[in-house]
């Protein structure tokens, strides 16, 4: 079945977007004390690692980095083909910390709802913010991102695919339209 696929971000675009997000985080949080960066598997994890590396470059200090899987908190367990569970690695106790969640694509908001539930079971952060590489719209819940790499208006029938070097062998964001 032929689909039309165009690349909307290339490697340089992704790199610039993540560096900008890193600067925004540092500026908005006024430093990085008490900050923890948690990537949502799968592709949120390498994105979180890159943002943490950029922050380390800017501030000269390492920020605790971890991952937060939401598979056990989803509300649609019966309805979708099950994907393997991802790792949850919380590097420091979250109580009183400022947490930045990182994901690749923000769409309905249900993944982030699940992530917030998961976080609540793991501790009580002072504040939680959300950074995403792509916001494609079509929210089903009252959730908004704090840091966005690229706002990408899409039709619900389109698919947004993020490819990352660490997983897919290249850095790119594609939009696929049904034929």
């Amino acid at each position: 079945m032929p689909t039309k696929r165009h690349r909307v971000l290339d490697a340089a675009d992704i790199d610039r977007a993540l560096r900008r997000i890193a600067h925004e985080i540092v500026e908005r949080e006024r430093g990085v004390d008490d900050l923890v960066i948690l990537g949502i598997p799968t592709r949120g994890v390498p994105l979180a690692r890159r943002i943490a590396a950029a922050i380390a470059e800017i501030e000269g200090t390492d920020v605790p980095l971890g991952s937060l899987d939401v598979g056990l908190y989803r509300d649609d367990l019966d309805a979708r083909p099950r994907v393997a569970l991802g790792p949850t690695e919380i590097p420091v106790p979250l109580d009183g910390r400022r947490v930045v969640l990182v994901d690749d694509v923000l769409y309905t908001g249900r993944t982030i709802r699940a992530a917030l539930d998961a976080l609540a079971d793991l501790g009580r952060p002072a504040r939680v913010r959300l950074a995403v590489l792509v916001d494609r719209g079509h929210r089903e819940l009252p959730i908004r991102p704090d840091h966005v790499g690229k706002n990408l208006p899409t039709a619900p029938t389109e698919r947004v695919t993020v490819h990352l070097e660490e997983i897919d062998g290249e850095d790119a964001v594609y939009v696929e339209e049904p034929a």
């Binding site: 056990l72 908190y73 393997a84 569970l85 991802g86 790792p87 079971d121």
Partner: peptide, 23 residues
């Protein structure tokens, strides 16, 4: 192997302060 991989994740859940998920 899939069952074992997920069991590894559940081991991590069992080590949490609140060892319970709503799945």
């Amino acid at each position: 192997e899939r069952l074992l991989d997920d069991a590894d994740r559940f081991r991590e859940v069992l080590e949490r302060p609140i060892a319970k998920v709503p799945t």
